[in-house]
Design a protein around this nucleic acid. Structure first.
Lengths: 237, 237
DNA sequence: GTCAAATTATGACGCCCCGTCAAAAAGTGT
DNA sequence: ACACTTTTTGACGGGGCGTCATAATTTGAC
């Protein structure tokens, strides 16, 4: 990506994250740079395309975290826990990128943006699902998991994806979660992910306490790797 | 609600659903009625408030469906299946309202709207969680479910909520789901919900086939009740 | 039926945003 | 120094937001 485009993105990102999609306007981006509005339009045909470009950066980072998680040694369930840790880490440490990902599922970004960048996003998403699917696949091959007949690894992944995504979105968009009796959604999410594994008979069986201990240890193990990935990605673009 | 406000909402609803939040403008609503823009502003201070008012209608409907589901006789797991059926029914038959609910978690509706209507929304949400929690509570009291220590019914509900919400949002916002190996997300969602129950040891244990049969029969049983609720609610407002 | 007071409706206005495009500026090669 | 190409500029038309002085309508007292 050209230097100019990167400059534009670095100006647009804080606007988007501090004041939301509505507040991101070409005029505002232009006025915060040494360029006029027309110049911005030479690089991005509309603000949706800027958002998409920012999302590409975020999803690249997410995939790198997933790749690191998946390549960990150990049993399939341990490796799945590593992916879970990557998800939690991404939301905690790259909350910006998480929110931009969410934007993609909300606003009508897709109508106005280039097919090329859309495909890039789709490829990252497919790639992430694929990475997690390899863990499920390994579990099936090693006999640790016997999925329901006719249920392929990606469909298993879908469940974990839904719990992670659903939990995090609900938690960050329902202010009164504590008041309705859900004081610690992160703990609840971990327990549900573990219960779903148990429900599929994924070996070795773990009770909620073992799983939470596993998650904590996995977090510690991967923390420095993850942080390194973040910094190296930030340098790239 | 006054007659005028209802008129405005009935004009705004199709605009919102056909052309999205961006396209909903006070000018456009006004031009489609026999009133001027200023009159619209006498009833709703901004378009966000209109969206919130539409969401109230939808959530009222959702809660009515949940109430009907929860009051069904039978074991706790059967009753939970009824709630699941209500969720599926809501998305299928009130897709409009489902999409408006989603808007609430996306756009910055909350900054610009009245606290009163916000509270109404929150109350409906709390009420829905509460209804489902009663089923979980009944399961605990009857001994069909032994939740992890320190995990209250709402936290259990949170997992099912996350799967339902997450699955449906992901499915409706990731066009290429089939291409990545998830041909029938509805079936996958049911299987995951069932596996989560099994993972908590919720009795009676069901395999995926028993659960899907249960869901189908529950749908048939409740279909006419649900349709009746829809029509009676539509008359109200 | 009349009229003044209260309520409600109107739409022009100022401000901001989008995306365009002709004109200006800067850069390039000879 | 000059012609040609590339890049930048910002004014412009179209449109949305929210306001508010003015106009129309309703109300109710006599």
């Amino acid at each position: 990506m050209e230097r100019r485009a990167r400059e534009i993105l670095s100006v647009a990102r804080p606007i988007l994250l501090e004041d939301g999609f509505q507040a991101l306007s070409m005029d505002r981006v232009a006025s915060q740079m040494e360029y006029a509005k027309g110049t911005i339009y030479n690089h991005f045909p509309n603000k949706e395309e800027i958002v998409l470009a920012l999302a590409v950066q975020g999803m690249k980072l997410r995939r790198a975290l997933f790749a690191k998680a998946v390549e960990q040694p150990g049993g399939s369930r341990h490796r799945l826990a590593c992916v879970g840790a990557a998800c939690e880490f991404f939301v905690s440490n790259c909350f910006d990128d998480f929110r931009i990902e969410q934007l993609l599922r909300q606003v009508n970004i897709w109508d106005k943006t280039s097919e090329h960048r859309q495909n890039t996003i789709r490829e990252y998403e497919t790639s992430c699902i694929g990475l997690v699917s390899t863990v499920v696949q390994a579990a099936v091959e090693s006999g640790e998991l016997q999925p329901p007949p006719g249920m392929d690894p990606p469909e298993i992944v879908f469940g974990f994806w839904a719990i992670c995504y659903g939990s995090q979105v609900l938690a960050h968009s329902s202010p009164g979660l504590k008041e309705v009796g859900i004081p610690d959604f992160g703990r609840a999410m971990r327990i549900h992910l573990n219960s779903l594994c148990n429900g599929f008979g994924w070996q070795p069986f773990m009770n909620w306490q073992q799983h939470i201990e596993l998650m904590d240890s996995v977090h510690q193990q991967l923390s420095s790797d993850f942080h390194q990935i973040i910094t190296s990605q930030r340098e790239d673009q």
